[in-house]
């Protein structure tokens, strides 16, 4: 009984099994994320009202906040995959960790870059060394550290373990980023969206922002699955099932 209950899990956690199953998710993830992105961009940039103080420049929030959300959430994905790889030695977890690192780095860079563009018209500067921005820069370096550390080792097994340890050590940075604007005096404003209170934003602006956040979550899932599939093919390129797959492609 217990054996059968876990069978689907083992099938999903094996690289060829995941490759086969995830192929069915791709059109759904791509379709929903692109549709929500289109709705959110048009709604946020064209139809949401301007802000009374910032005018139209606040609209960068529709990119900045979702990118920041996923930069933080993506770190937990990477660290959790690292922990699973360390404890249970699940091959797929190591693949997920190596696929999540460049994706998280790109999102963190997008959050920093869009924030910098937003900072110039509102604060009057592109960059300031306040706690929120500096801890976000540390997050970028953590992601890049995981990317480069993997390439520093000849053995994939050692590289995976070293990256997992680095990713786990870095998790302490996530609550620091999140709470930085409350713990210290900073130039960055506190959070608009909170779990415990209503958002300090007009509903006409908040609704497209929620759409954009959802779209980014789906987009993240889509790109992560694509990255994982590509990495599986690279790692298993000598395996029979990949050769069969490539053979099928040729004959068609």
């Amino acid at each position: 009984m217990a054996e059968r209950r876990w069978q689907w899990f083992h099938r999903l956690a094996s690289p060829p099994g995941f490759y086969r199953v995830s192929g069915r998710w791709l059109p759904w993830l791509a379709g929903t994320s692109l549709a929500l992105l289109a709705v959110g961009v048009v709604w946020g940039l064209l139809y949401a009202p301007p802000d009374a103080r910032q005018g139209n420049s606040y609209r960068i929030i529709f990119l900045h906040v979702p990118a920041s959300f996923l930069a933080l959430a993506g770190y937990y994905v990477m660290a959790a995959a690292g922990a699973i790889h360390l404890i249970w030695r699940v091959k797929l977890a190591d693949v997920v960790m190596s696929a999540a690192a460049p994706l998280g780095a790109a999102l963190t860079f997008l959050a920093l870059f869009s924030g910098s563009l937003w900072g110039k018209p509102t604060w009057g500067t592109y960059w300031v060394w306040d706690a929120r921005i500096t801890s976000m820069l540390v997050l970028l370096f953590l992601y890049l550290g995981v990317v480069t550390l993997r390439q520093a080792y000849a053995s994939r097994e050692t590289a995976g373990r070293a990256c997992a340890v680095l990713a786990l050590v870095g998790t302490v940075n996530i609550p620091i980023i999140y709470k930085s604007v409350d713990w210290w005096y900073s130039l960055h404003q506190p959070a608009t969206i909170r779990l415990t209170a209503a958002p300090s934003m007009h509903p006409d602006m908040f609704q497209p922002l929620v759409v954009m956040i959802l779209a980014f979550y789906l987009f993240y899932a889509w790109v992560l699955v694509l990255n994982v599939r590509a990495e599986i093919l690279v790692r298993e390129r000598r395996a029979g099932w990949v050769r069969d797959l490539a053979g099928e492609g040729e004959s068609e």
Partner: peptide, 8 residues
């Protein structure tokens, strides 16, 4: 600026 956003 603060975390509040309001239409004009």
């Amino acid at each position: 600026h603060d975390e509040n956003y309001t239409p004009p």
